[in-house]
Computed example of a mutant assay.
Amino acid sequence: MRQIYAFLLTSLDGHHAATDGSLDWFRTDEEFERYSRGQGDVIDTIVMGRRTFEMMAAYWPTEEAYAEDPVVAAFMNDLPKIVASRTLTSHPWGPTTFVADDVAGHLAAVKDRPGKDIAIFGSSTLVGDLLPTGVIDELRVIVNPVVLGSGRSVFAGTAGPVGLHRTAVREFGNGNVLLTYRLDA
């Protein structure tokens, strides 16, 4: 069976975005970029919430995105996307399915089909909503060595508690740390 993993970026103090919504504080380097590009080899579906979808749809189809990172641009643009949204029903960006209700049920059905893994990129509100349902199998959280002081909490709104156990830790040369967790059975 396929697995669904959520890939989230957070500051050391637990924020996925600054108060104004900006993400320019996040440190990247070639090692992080290689890791990001490698995700395209193991997935065949991308899941996002509406806000993340709109942000990514504004960037990845652009010439700038293809010039900056052609590998990630290719899989972001070409892979099927599932978007949790009560307001969007169509969009010209790539193959996209919009799901307004029972997102967890929809994803569970997709998980049962043959294929590669399914990735949720960003979309911390969606991840918080889905964690208690058990449909997410794994969390991959990159902790950046930056303290924002305030911002949008990475797991705000999660109806918890949700038990996790750590399965891996990876340190990146620039100080980022990738923490991988599985949900407790």
Rank of each mutant, 00 (worst) to 15 (best):
F32G: 04
L12N: 06
F7E: 11
E33N: 10
K81S: 12
Q39E: 08
T45L: 13
D129S: 12
V127I: 04
W60T: 10
G160V: 06
P92L: 02
A159N: 13
E64R: 15
A168L: 06
A108Q: 06
L139V: 06
P92Y: 00
V71G: 12
I4S: 10
S36V: 14
E31I: 04
T19P: 03
G40S: 08
Y66Q: 15
T133Y: 03
A109D: 15
F121V: 14
D78L: 11
K116T: 02
I142A: 14
E171H: 14
Y59S: 03
A104W: 01
D117L: 01
P92I: 04
G40V: 11
G157T: 10
F121D: 01
A108D: 08
I82C: 12
G94A: 05
R182N: 05
V47K: 10
E64Q: 15
Q3S: 15
F53E: 12
F7W: 07
G160L: 06
F121K: 05
V71H: 08
S36W: 01
K116E: 00
V110E: 15
L130G: 03
K111F: 09
S85N: 13
R140V: 07
V146F: 04
H106V: 07
D117K: 07
D112V: 01
A57W: 01
S150L: 03
R113P: 00
A100R: 14
D69H: 02
A168C: 04
D184W: 01
H16K: 08
R2P: 01
L130A: 06
T19R: 15
R50N: 05
L126G: 01
E64T: 14
V71E: 14
L126Y: 00
A73S: 15
D184Y: 00
L88G: 03
H165W: 02
R166H: 06
A67R: 13
V127C: 04
G38P: 11
P70T: 13
F155L: 14
T133F: 03
F155Q: 09
H106D: 08
V162D: 09
V146K: 13
E138I: 03
D78F: 01
V141L: 15
N176K: 13
F75M: 10
F121T: 07
S11Q: 08
F26Q: 12
S36L: 10
H16I: 09
E54I: 12
G163H: 06
G160I: 11
V47A: 11
T158C: 15
S11F: 03
E171D: 15
F26V: 12
Y181C: 08
T10E: 12
A58W: 00
V154D: 00
D78G: 15
V110K: 15
P114A: 07
A159R: 15
G149C: 09
T19D: 03
D102K: 09
A17K: 11
G134D: 05
I4T: 09
S150T: 11
V72H: 13
A57N: 08
T52F: 06
L107T: 13
H165Q: 09
G128N: 05
A109C: 11
R140T: 03
F172G: 07
V162R: 12
F155H: 05
S90F: 02
F155S: 10
D44G: 12
